[in-house]
């Protein structure tokens, strides 16, 4: 965990500059990993935990785009332990970066500006820590994912939802480059319809139960299982994200699962 104190005014200032310099809709150079400042707030999540119907998110900063092959290549060159043939199996499965041409070579199947995929949670986390950052929490990621291009909280925005549903059904042989889609309200690109993204607590223990039947087998598999349930079962796209994350293990790599990094900012800003 990065202490908030380490992210005092310097990061905040640079993040604000990056945020101000990039007007909504404009594309910053992709080689410059830019952060967006996200105001704190709260929301009613897809799931419900008794007594905690709303999730509170403190202000933080988040990469405007998913991490690219190019940036991840620089990381594995500097950190050979994360190269394809050197990584420990405990931390990445056998498909880790399998579409790259070599340990430190992208090749024809991995363009520099495509999002990096086939990376494990451990590798994504190590990348972010090497930048002095961290993975966003599930609460933070879902908070910004609720935005449409005009509103910070529009989880059922028809345009966004139909775009996501079209993506779910589209057999895509190649990934688009990052940053090609319109930014959302926060200035974040590609939260939807490009790749799925790792979060720090992807393995949170959330169990969907029907409130009429709280004593079923889920109680034995989880401690506290009976206290959670779905609050907004109509939010199908959010449901799919939670379901997908729950199906992962930390060493898994998937051809359309990437990540972006977050950073703490000084409280109250």
């Amino acid at each position: 965990m990065i202490p908030a104190a380490r992210w005092s005014s310097t990061l905040l200032l640079s993040a604000l500059i990056a945020s101000a310099a990039t007007a909504w809709g404009q594309r910053a150079p992709q080689s410059a990993p830019d952060l967006r400042v996200i105001r704190g707030g709260e929301y009613r999540p897809f799931y419900r935990l008794t007594g905690r119907e709303r999730v509170t998110v403190r202000a933080f900063a988040l990469d405007a785009r998913p991490v690219t092959n190019e940036r991840f290549l620089a990381f594995v060159r500097a950190n050979p332990a994360w190269q394809r043939t050197r990584v420990r199996r405990l931390f990445a499965d056998q498909d880790y970066l399998a579409h790259w041409a070599g340990d430190a070579e992208l090749g024809p199947a991995a363009r520099p500006s495509q999002p990096v995929t086939r990376v494990s949670w451990f590798a994504a986390r190590a990348f972010c820590e090497a930048q002095g950052r961290r993975l966003p929490t599930e609460g933070e990621w879902e908070y910004v994912a609720r935005a449409s291009d005009r509103s910070p909280d529009a989880p059922r925005d028809p345009a966004t939802t139909s775009r996501i549903l079209a993506w779910y059904g589209r057999p895509n042989a190649t990934l688009e480059d990052v940053g090609a889609s319109r930014p959302n309200y926060w200035g974040l690109h590609d939260l939807h319809a490009l790749v799925w993204e790792w979060v720090e607590d992807f393995n949170s223990a959330l169990v969907v139960t029907d409130s009429r039947d709280n004593q079923g087998p889920g109680v034995a598999r989880f401690c506290g299982a009976a206290s959670s349930g779905a609050a907004d079962v109509g939010d199908y796209v959010a449901f799919m994200r939670y379901a997908f994350r729950q199906s992962l293990r930390g060493s898994y790599t998937v051809r359309n699962l990437g990540f972006r990094c977050a950073a703490d900012i000084a409280p109250g800003e």
Partner: peptide, 21 residues
Amino acid sequence: RPITLGLLALTLASACGRNTP
């Protein structure tokens, strides 16, 4: 009945397109 989201993902994965889990 209570089911984990992970189990639902198993069910859903087979019913959806290439970008699904």
